[in-house]
C-alpha cells in the first residue's frame, strides 16, 4: 500500500536500503535475505521516495545472483562496495551513508550469513549519530523530518512510534512480505561497484565456527528428596504418544480439558 510521504522541502525523499546476501536455510543457496527483501519492499511502497540499494560484501557469482534478486523487485540498481569476505563492513557503509545522506535507512534485522549479530544498524547509527529503531512493521507517514512508524511487538501487536530523521530502521518478519522478484528487471538492473578498502575483522579470526548443533532439550528438574521421584522424572518420556480421546462428555467437560491444555501450553494470555 503506498504511503504518503511528504518531505520537508519538496525534494524527493531518499531512502537507502542496506541489503545483504542471504542464505536459504535448507539448501544454503545464496538468495535475497528475507528481512532485507522486506526492507526493500517497505522502501518501494513509499510513494515518491527515491530508493537506493547498498550492499557491502564480497563479489562472486552467487552473491551477484542474490543481489539481482533485489533488482528483480523493480529497483534500477544496487551500489556494491566490494569487501573481503572477512571484512567488517561498518566502516564502508558508514562512509557511503555519510556521503549519500539519505533521510531514512532501512535494513533487515540481522544477516543470514556470517556472525549475524544484528549489530550493524546500531553501529552505523552510533557512528553517524542517527536514531535507530527496530522491528518496523509499517511506515505510516513521513512529515517534516519525523516518521510515524508502527513497530511490531510479539503476537501481532503494534506500537506507534515517532522517529526523528535521519534514522536507521530494521525490519523483521512482521513487515509485509517482499514482492516477487521478476527475471526481466533483475537481468536489466545495474550493479554499480564502488571501492572502499576492506577493514579486516581480526576478532572473528579467533572464533571457532561450526554448523549449529541441536540444542539439548531442557529436562524438567525435579527437586524432590525422594530418589524414586527423581529417577521417574529423569526417565519419563517427554510425550506419552497417543492422544487423549474424550467422547461422551458434556461440552463443559470437553471445554475444560481444552482449557487446561491451552493453559499448560501458555497460549492463553
Amino acid at each position: 500500500m503506498p504511503r504518503n510521504v511528504k518531505s520537508l522541502n519538496g525534494a524527493g525523499f531518499s531512502v537507502s536500503v542496506l541489503v545483504s546476501v542471504g542464505r536459504h536455510p535448507l539448501t544454503a543457496r545464496a538468495r535475497r535475505a528475507d528481512h532485507d527483501a522486506r526492507a526493500v519492499e517497505m522502501a518501494l511502497s513509499l510513494n515518491d521516495a527515491s530508493v537506493q540499494l547498498i550492499h557491502a560484501g564480497d563479489n562472486d557469482t552467487a552473491s551477484e545472483e542474490a543481489l539481482r534478486g533485489y533488482l528483480g523487485m523493480g529497483v534500477s540498481g544496487v551500489k556494491r562496495i566490494e569487501q573481503a569476505s572477512n571484512a567488517d563492513v561498518v566502516p564502508a557503509l558508514t562512509n557511503i551513508l555519510r556521503f549519500a545522506a539519505p533521510q531514512l535507512v532501512l535494513t533487515g534485522t540481522r544477516a543470514e550469513t556470517g556472525e549475524g549479530s544484528g549489530l550493524v544498524p546500531y553501529l552505523l547509527a552510533e557512528s553517524l549519530g542517527w536514531t535507530v529503531v527496530s522491528g518496523l512493521a509499517e511506515i505510516e507517514s513521513i512529515e517534516q523530518g519525523v516518521a510515524t512508524v508502527l513497530q511490531a511487538l510479539p503476537r501481532g501487536k503494534r506500537r506507534r512510534l515517532q522517529v526523528r530523521l535521519p534514522a536507521i530502521a530494521t525490519v523483521d518478519s512482521s513487515a509485509p512480505a517482499a514482492r516477487q522478484s521478476a527475471f526481466g528487471p533483475a537481468r536489466r538492473g545495474e550493479l554499480t561497484d564502488c571501492a572502499y578498502a576492506s577493514v579486516i575483522d581480526e576478532l572473528q579470526t579467533q572464533w571457532h565456527i561450526q554448523p549449529a548443533r541441536k540444542r539439548p532439550k531442557r529436562l524438567k528438574i525435579v527437586k524432590s528428596a525422594s530418589a524414586r521421584d527423581r529417577f521417574k522424572a529423569a526417565a519419563a518420556k517427554a510425550d506419552s504418544g497417543g492422544g487423549q480421546l474424550l467422547s461422551d462428555v458434556t461440552p463443559e467437560q470437553g471445554a475444560e480439558a481444552i482449557f487446561t491444555l491451552l493453559k499448560e501450553e501458555g497460549v492463553l494470555r
Partner: peptide, 26 residues
C-alpha cells in the same frame, strides 16, 4: 482425531461456547 493430542467428540458449537465461557471466567 488420530493425529490429535487431545480430541473432544461432540458438537463444535456447544464446545466452543463452553470454552469461551471458561476462558472468560479465567
Amino acid at each position: 482425531v488420530k493425529r490429535a493430542d487431545l480430541a473432544v467428540i461432540g458438537d463444535a458449537g456447544e464446545i466452543l461456547a463452553a470454552l469461551v465461557a471458561r476462558v472468560e471466567r479465567y
